[in-house]
Design a binder for these strands. Structure first.
Lengths: 170, 170
DNA sequence: GAGATATGTCAGCCATGTTGACGTATCTTG
DNA sequence: CAAGATACGTCAACATGGCTGACATATCTC
């Protein structure tokens, strides 16, 4: 992997120059990859009169049913006022229901309704389509590399939270 | 699409289920990786009273000096009215200058001023710090995998434009 | 019973995107 | 050369989704 470089430039090829180009390549690909992936669902969302903020909430609730409001706040890293607006709309459209926490009655556990689940599945299908095409083209080995680099971008303090999404809730 | 859902049902772990989990893992890591990386520069930007929109413009102008307004519009995929506001602010603060295109006098070529370049370099340093830490942890092989997957996420129609960022302008 | 915590909500502000309409300079082409 | 296309700028109005600050309620913990 020596040849990530841009050879034609300095023949001595200072490591600093190579490094900058590698970093910029990552920044750009991350930007375009992320924005183009999210674009994939905008049309579907617009049909429902919803925005990306709604999708993020739907996504995480689908991912971890019975998530509490507080946990969702930590995942999204926004204020409760902002989230409140979104959750209220999802609730008004019967996409999300809440129930009182069984252990701590102050908590509200979030869950998708049937129609909420259907909508999330439709949106997810778009993401799946794009991402699996990219996975297939790149190959399995690249996919694990992709994951490793991204994991390294998540600050230590958030990492456990992200990993926990893959566990079933108790 | 009902069958993809999460099957505590199938203990045999259908390939379909694994696929969903791989896709969700990618979606989440991309979300957290991207947002946390961009968070890295928010504080620096806030000091200057600038926002992310300004940074995106600065970044691409730094990346490809003498970029035209039209090229920048295509990269950012926003309306000229939105970009106009941002460029005006950057110009008012003496971070960006324009000159008339030498071949086509309708065009305006964008370039950073000295102070614009300094600011962009400071912001880039933050990105470099985060990304290179992630690169080092993941290893060079992972980095190329990371690039490959992301390239696959960029639609065919945009890919050339993205690759051209790595070329010097004529 | 006092204080901390989880949640909700009112009110207003800001950044950054959108559409639609229109103006000017310059290039291209019949 | 005249007519139309193109590159850029700008006015006005509006939507989305963040933010701060302040305050209320229910519930848990000590």
């Amino acid at each position: 992997m020596a040849d990530i470089s841009r050879p034609s430039a300095s023949p001595g090829a200072s490591p600093l120059f190579l490094r900058e180009d590698e970093i910029r390549r990552g920044v750009e690909l991350l930007y375009f990859g992320y924005t183009r992936l999210t674009n994939a669902i905008d049309q579907e969302l617009a049909k429902q009169g919803l925005g990306r903020a709604h999708h993020r909430a739907l996504y995480f609730i689908a991912r971890q049913p019975d998530l509490t409001v507080g946990e969702l706040l930590r995942l999204l890293a926004i204020t409760k006022q902002s989230l409140g607006r979104v959750l209220k709309e999802l609730h008004d459209r019967d996409l999300v229901v809440t129930k009182t926490g069984p252990l701590d009655r102050r908590q509200k556990l979030l869950r998708l309704t049937d129609s909420g689940g259907t909508l999330e599945a439709e949106l997810f299908a778009q993401l799946r389509e794009r991402l699996s095409a990219a996975y297939v083209t790149a190959g399995q080995e690249s996919v694990t590399g992709f994951w490793h680099v991204l994991e390294g971008l998540v600050p230590e303090s958030d990492r456990q939270m992200v990993f926990d999404l893959r566990k079933d809730k108790v």
